[in-house]
Design a protein around this nucleic acid. Structure first.
Lengths: 247, 247
DNA sequence: GGAATAGTGTCTCTGAGACAGTATAGT
DNA sequence: ACTATACTGTCTCAGAGACACTATTCC
């Protein structure tokens, strides 16, 4: 209770002005690997480096609207199948030029990224998360985006355990194999097909269809197709294996 | 990829200025009930209403530093036993006067709140969460603080399941009864003392002490005292009961 | 002794995981 | 036929929950 306490009234002359941005960790699965959308910076600072897509929040839009807009502008995707905020980053030195607070979002796209098709490949690209965050990364990110990406991926891993998020990665109709592939890619672990199927069915977040998939190039019995139920919290988590991870 | 895309370069003349604040959901347990620190607003808008403690982030401090400073200034608490960010709120209309983005923090205090003792009681008070968020609330909060409080309490409930957060609510030396009381207050559910003890010991996040507590006013065998280990993620969650909640 | 809390023992039930066995496709 | 995937059955083990029982205090 010092006498210097900031008054609750918002006097425009008493607060320091901030820039507020959104940055988006856009994840998808391609060829069985978890990949992230990155853009190449065209201006200083960090010109030429890779960064997460994002930009300034406009004066009259909400944070979620800004994230959806930037996602659409930078990747050509009209609507992600999932969009969730996961944190704010505001260290005074994170941008060398001025004070910027960024709000980070996690977005999920269905398989077969439309990035290469819809946008300028020189600006937006899809890279394996492993090549960015691994022990010997092939790329480095601008600002504190490596930290943001790390947190976003960890959030995705955790949300996969406790909700039916996995359905956001796959097509509207999918097989158990497809769905299992999501967990295997995001967790970097192998799952037993038989036990996985039982766990998913027990949690009742997919609805069966009459259809069956065509057999894959490797042969095998055609798999049943399922549809997603509403994305929701699971009654009990699907356990992420504690061993065998190759992240 | 419209031609109107915001450039990544941060031109001070091109971004709308925001005010950035922190708001803190300060939780503690008193008389077996989960309580939250609220302050009475002295100025418009919402003058006289209750609000979460918080204030402007200064030009040269991080968000975490701002949260710790505001907590100290408004409640007299030098250091919370836990402080974690859990979200940003930035709807354009959340403050009628100007564009404000607030970053929300969850703080935990040990039992016996020092609020009444250390600070002006007319400004800061400790109220049961149930009286603010229940079906027939006795108090209403300014701005979108009810939403922020709801989210903060839910975050606390969830973090209690998956980490050793509970030890942040109790004194450095505590009994199993104390610790169980934390879960019961935060979850609003009764737990079996025998099974609870085994679950905590199995997860190995408390260290035994040679000491025993004095027997309570109701009599009973003196309980063993424990100390907290490092706050950390649990190998497997302590399950929150799905039924019997009275929230 | 009676009441109350602390702590141990033990039984049951559910569910995860391992893995064998069956079904149906491509080659 | 062989192989690969899909799916079912079954066994084992660990842990959650219910609850009886013992231990130690205050009254």
């Amino acid at each position: 209770m010092a006498g210097t306490k900031t008054p609750k009234g918002y006097d425009p002359r008493k607060f320091p002005p901030f820039a507020v941005t959104v940055d988006i960790v856009v994840l998808t699965i391609e060829d069985g690997a978890l990949k992230v959308v990155l853009v190449e910076r065209g201006v200083e600072p960090h010109k030429g480096d890779l960064a997460l897509p994002g930009g300034f929040v406009k004066a009259d839009e909400s944070l979620e609207e800004a994230a959806a807009r930037e996602l659409s502008e930078e990747t050509g995707v009209e609507a992600a199948s999932y969009l969730e905020q996961f944190g704010a980053y505001g260290n005074p030195k994170r941008d060398p030029r001025m004070r910027v607070v960024t709000v980070a979002f996690l977005a999920i796209l269905r398989e077969v990224g439309p990035i290469a098709a819809d946008s300028d490949a020189a600006e937006a690209m899809l890279l394996p998360v492993k090549d960015v965050l691994g022990r010997r990364p092939k790329y480095s990110l601008a600002f504190d985006h490596e930290r943001i990406l790390t947190d976003g991926v960890e959030r995705a891993r955790h949300t996969l355990e406790t909700t039916s998020l996995a359905t956001a990665f796959v097509e509207p109709e999918f097989t158990m194999s497809d769905l299992r592939g999501v967990y295997e890619a995001v967790w970097g672990a192998r799952l037993d097909p038989a036990n996985f199927r039982r766990q998913v069915l027990a949690r009742d977040f997919v609805r069966p269809t009459a259809k069956r998939a065509l057999s894959g190039p490797e042969g095998g019995k055609p798999a049943e197709k399922f549809r997603a139920g509403k994305t929701r919290e699971l009654r009990s988590p699907i356990a992420r294996p504690r061993k065998g991870g190759d992240r």
